[in-house]
């Protein structure tokens, strides 16, 4: 073990997770420069932070995506946006983040540095700081390169209630942009499908968009980010929680052409493809137009559209196609695509 890390050609070694000098070196030379903030630099066993009176929201999310680097993002930024977005769609303002790393022996330090720097930049973009972190190293073959678990803590505004019980018949279902780009991008890059059209993941933070919505005074009943299982899965959860149906019109569903091409090619349904930077918003019909305008005015919501309506009846998600045929869109039995986040 040299006196400093070989960030060009070095690899993760078991000693880096030992808690000894090698661990300290990895923290000091790789993680701290990327994630630096006063609290993390103290290197105490835990982080201390002040809280305002009121309610906190906490959400945790593990990331095991393969490949670690994909068009439009990487596991570092994804692991930040994942937890931040979960907290944001609860209506809360993200404040702090913790991160746990499980590293496989032999993983290149240069790539780990890129991941850490990407995390740092993502955290900065979200206005959160990584105040506590942990690293473990496992033997080669016992993990797949890098796994990251993050936990985000956010402040819940006074009096805000975005519970599914708010959802009423007649409510409109809005989405902040086109569907399925993350799932399609990961699939296309993983399977080396040889597609010419590049598909980029939609991975991005949505806290700003949510903040703009809440500040605009829009009366929002419910919000979710359609990650694993995509829009179909989130809306199936909604119909089950609300005990009402949702009807969508296939013609207005926003799916970009390359994503459609991938799904046609592989026989998959983009309704089930994961998004990592979109919000599904449910609001009263009377507020839908105004809410949509606010969403479309925000950089993270330029492609916002109204995709459906909450209706009385059985808790089914149904899609009406262009000639009037209707089909039920159910929960998937299993994973359409494993390890996408």
């Amino acid at each position: 073990m040299g006196r400093s890390l070989n960030l060009k050609h070095g690899v993760v070694e078991l000693a880096h997770g030992s808690g000894g000098r090698a661990s300290a070196l990895l923290t000091k030379e790789l993680f701290l420069p990327a994630l630096a903030n006063a609290e993390l630099c103290k290197a105490d066993d835990g982080a201390v932070f002040a809280v305002e009176a009121g309610r906190l929201v906490v959400s945790t999310d593990s990331h095991v995506i393969s490949p670690l680097f994909f068009p439009g993002g990487d596991i570092g930024s994804l692991s930040v946006f994942g937890s931040v977005n979960d907290v944001a769609v609860m209506g809360a303002k993200p404040q702090h983040l913790t991160a746990g790393f499980i590293l496989e022996e032999g993983y290149p330090l240069a790539d780990l540095k890129r991941i850490a720097e990407s995390m740092g930049q993502a955290a900065k973009a979200c206005g959160v700081s990584v105040i506590a972190a942990d690293t473990k190293v496992v033997k080669r073959g016992e993990a797949d390169d890098v796994f990251i678990t993050t936990t985000c803590i956010g402040l819940m505004p006074e009096g805000l209630n975005l519970d599914a019980s708010n959802i009423q018949s007649g409510d409109q279902v809005l989405i902040s942009g086109s569907m399925g780009e993350h799932g399609a991008a990961v699939l296309a890059s993983r399977e080396d499908l040889g597609l010419h059209a590049a598909i980029e993941s939609d991975s991005q933070p949505v806290h700003g968009l949510v903040n703009a919505l809440l500040n605009s005074g829009a009366k929002i009943h419910f919000m979710r980010d359609p990650t694993r299982g995509g829009v179909a899965t989130v809306l199936n959860e909604v119909v089950n929680m609300a005990g009402k149906g949702i009807k969508m019109d296939e013609q207005v569903l926003p799916v970009r052409e390359p994503v459609r091409a991938v799904s046609e090619l592989l026989g998959l349904d983009p309704l089930y493809f994961a998004c990592e930077g979109r919000v599904v918003v449910i609001c009263a019909a009377a507020d839908a137009e105004q809410t949509l305008k606010v969403m479309q005015a925000h950089p993270a919501g330029l492609g916002s559209v109204n995709i459906g309506e909450v209706v009385d009846g059985l808790p089914h998600l149904t899609v009406r196609n262009s000639w009037g045929g209707e089909r039920i869109v159910n929960m998937l039995a299993g994973d359409q695509l494993p390890r996408i986040c």
Binding site: E257, E264, N321, S322, W323, G324
Partner: peptide, 18 residues
């Protein structure tokens, strides 16, 4: 999308169903 859209054309669908 070529070879897809024309075979899901609502006008043609409606005509065939009629």
């Amino acid at each position: 999308m070529k070879y897809v859209d024309e075979y899901r054309d609502p006008a043609r669908m409606k005509r065939l169903l009629a």
